[in-house]
Design a protein around this nucleic acid. Sequence first.
DNA 1: GTGAAAGCGCTAACAG
DNA 2: CTGTTAGCGCTTTCAC
Lengths: 336, 336
Amino acid sequence: MSSPKRTTVYDVAREAGVAASTVSRAFSNPRRVNATTRRHVLAVAERLGYHPSPLATALQSGRTATLAMLVPDIANPHFFGTIRGAERRATAADITFILGFTEESADTERDQIERLARSVDGFVLASSRMPDSTTADLAREHNLVLVNREVDGLPSVVVDNASGSAQIVDHLASLGHRSLVYLSGPHQSWLAGERWRALSAGAGRRGMGATRLGPFPPQVAGGGAAADAALVSGATAVVAHNDLLAIGILRRLAERGVQVPEQISVVGYDDIFGADFCVPALTTLAGPQEEAGRSAVEILLTTGSARADPESPRRVVLPSHLVIRDSTGPAPDPGR
Amino acid sequence: MSSPKRTTVYDVAREAGVAASTVSRAFSNPRRVNATTRRHVLAVAERLGYHPSPLATALQSGRTATLAMLVPDIANPHFFGTIRGAERRATAADITFILGFTEESADTERDQIERLARSVDGFVLASSRMPDSTTADLAREHNLVLVNREVDGLPSVVVDNASGSAQIVDHLASLGHRSLVYLSGPHQSWLAGERWRALSAGAGRRGMGATRLGPFPPQVAGGGAAADAALVSGATAVVAHNDLLAIGILRRLAERGVQVPEQISVVGYDDIFGADFCVPALTTLAGPQEEAGRSAVEILLTTGSARADPESPRRVVLPSHLVIRDSTGPAPDPGR
DNA sequence: GTGAAAGCGCTAACAG
DNA sequence: CTGTTAGCGCTTTCAC
């Protein structure tokens, strides 16, 4: 299954009539080698089919040229973009990309980090479930970049929830809604907190009422309970923690014979795959997910370099925009 | 960012009053060490916070305890289950899981394999786009397991397309359809070939006509052209290469005012996220994707072991079943 | 059952 | 600019 003997720096060195260190430099430190020598070495290497061993390189240098991304669950299409953006950027930089799932558990997340620590140069943590303190502790030992999560002092990339939530409030207000209900994700979720904060603040500015219900599991299956709770509350407009939940809500509402958006408007977050073809098509807050992943890896790339670039942004906020589809409409006539 | 000095086998050895080799054995070859000695060594290691370096282990032993999975594109929700199943199985076996995307390109796939070759013990190739010969060549140098693809002599895990396609044909026949149109994926796609073969064979047995149209890009965006081609052909029933394409077809049909399933029935493959909430909900062939991923890793795990287990199945065929929803119905009355 | 010694393949001082 | 010399942290014969 594997060749009897791989060619090493020494084979190339002997064949090229130089020292092993020169071969090494020719590959990893081109400018420290005479151009001619280098070309010759590379030619010989090519001829011998030599490829540096990433393992040996990593063992010696301490740099693994590998990074890991940890995601709560791949079943949420929301993460596609982020994963893909991160993978692309990593591969482009010749960095190996490890993907791990945390099963929505802070403990699993922590374990994964410990487990991979020696094999990677850094971590991209997407929607991390760990408490601030744990995260900060880990950051002392490892290179971390957060996506859609912020912890004081740690580099992060987030989609702008404040402005996005304000856009949602404005949209609902302009449709004549006098109040909204936020159907929350897990209470320990940082995003849920951010969204609720921004939503209620926006509602306040608009003189609208705002209520938080939940928590609900941020999945399609959570939509049943969420929809029922919303109906009981008499809401005319609900904002779901994410599109998965929103789609579940739409489904339950349809089962109950409640018209969307005539009787109730529904808004989601993320603009996931399917948000445009569920019925009615979902009004939702879209953000550049792929860019978020790309950007997180970018930060890791510069952070990892010897001289951490103080110029490079350590906190990136990406713009979001509301995609208005068919799940939102004028508030029902209160007279009826 | 990293501790000043990591604890090594030597630290543990000194502290435990044994040789480094004994520490090594205590971890990797428990039965070659006196139980008491071992317990002592492990205790000391624990106290010192020692964790073996995967890099050093790999460099020395040649086993990396890592595997890579290559997937054409994460944007297709079809791959979620497979990825998750593979990741879970790998993590459970304490194997690091690398994920790469091939951008639907055989060349990229090959490059990724070469790039990762030294860092992993084997590859899971999902819906590989490489030609048989290339795959066979690579298999001489690397441990490969294919998912939803078969190449002579190579281990593979596939969802049963033959029986699945037969189920589709039977279903359509029972609804009175006299012919079907297969809206094909890429012609170089192995799956497309398999599906068409099974579909036309099944149709033959049922005395139905079968036509293949395409190729179409197996994405939602491909649905426009596919639907138009189907309409021109006068089909009463179309089978799309996958759910992505089927959903795109549904959308175009709706735009054209064509009633599904009254005027035309639509069937997909994969039962992806969204297949149950698009409109009409899609009749589609479902398979145990997660099991496929799990199983592929399982094979890799046994293949990699010193004595390749001749008992272990090298070719796994997983059962599929048709999920009948609302996109299929009785053939339209030919009299009308 | 345990220890000593020799590397796995590479890079990083340090000379020259 | 290039060669020499040590290891990185672990496993693996080979003795004892």
